[in-house]
């Protein structure tokens, strides 16, 4: 479409809603089986009493707390049911404890948790070494699959990694020579 004033196309919009409706292609399996919006499973969006659940209590039992669990400042306490996997520990645990002083509404809460995750990765490597296990980054990162299914990509990444390693070694040796 040209923007030259003399040959500017004029577009008048007057599509009727019926014209805008499309007829589906022939032979779509099950087309229209859930056509009626009021018969769809999640209509209405908020539906009470709830179906499909076998609740047989008035009050929910409380799970005993056996490990450290944080809770959001946007609720007054723990939930009656909670996960106990990987309780907080070490420096990452301290950073997470600090993060939970801020509400979910505060960016500092999430940024501190992300930072704690990175610290946790280092702690994880130290923990591996302390237990006599040297982590195999090549297999953990799917190196065998990359070699098998994307050999060109593997070779390219190996060259880049090798190039970066060579540059760092060279910079280090120059620094040593200067000192």
């Amino acid at each position: 479409m040209s923007n030259h004033p003399e040959d500017m196309t004029v577009y008048v919009e007057k599509t009727t809603p019926e014209e805008h409706q499309r007829r589906p292609p022939e032979g779509i399996p099950g087309w229209g089986a859930d056509l009626d919006p009021q018969a769809r499973p999640a209509y209405p969006m908020e539906r009470t009493p709830p179906r499909f659940i076998n609740k047989h209590w008035d009050d929910l039992d409380h799970q005993p707390r056996t490990v450290k669990v944080f809770h959001s400042t946007e609720r007054p306490g723990l939930t009656p049911v909670f996960g106990t996997a990987q309780p907080p520990s070490g420096l990452s645990g301290l950073i997470r404890a600090g993060a939970f002083r801020y509400s979910e509404n505060d960016l500092r809460h999430w940024l501190m948790l992300l930072f704690a995750d990175r610290v946790d990765v280092v702690e994880g490597i130290i923990d591996d070494l302390a237990h006599g296990h040297v982590p195999n980054f090549f297999t953990e990162m799917g190196g065998p699959a990359e070699w098998r299914y994307n050999r060109n990509g593997f070779i390219r990444k190996a060259f880049i990694a090798g190039g970066i390693a060579a540059l760092l070694l060279y910079a280090n040796s120059r620094r040593k020579r200067r000192t």
Binding site: R47, T48, I53, K55, S72, V81, F100
Partner: peptide, 27 residues
């Protein structure tokens, strides 16, 4: 949990009784 305000409205992905760490997210 099937018990909380949200589960009682069939908003099962928004349960308030199973995730202590974030009220914005269910379990």
């Amino acid at each position: 949990c099937g018990t909380c305000f949200f589960c009682q409205k069939e908003l099962f992905s928004n349960c308030h009784n199973v995730n202590p760490e974030a009220t914005a997210i269910g379990g």
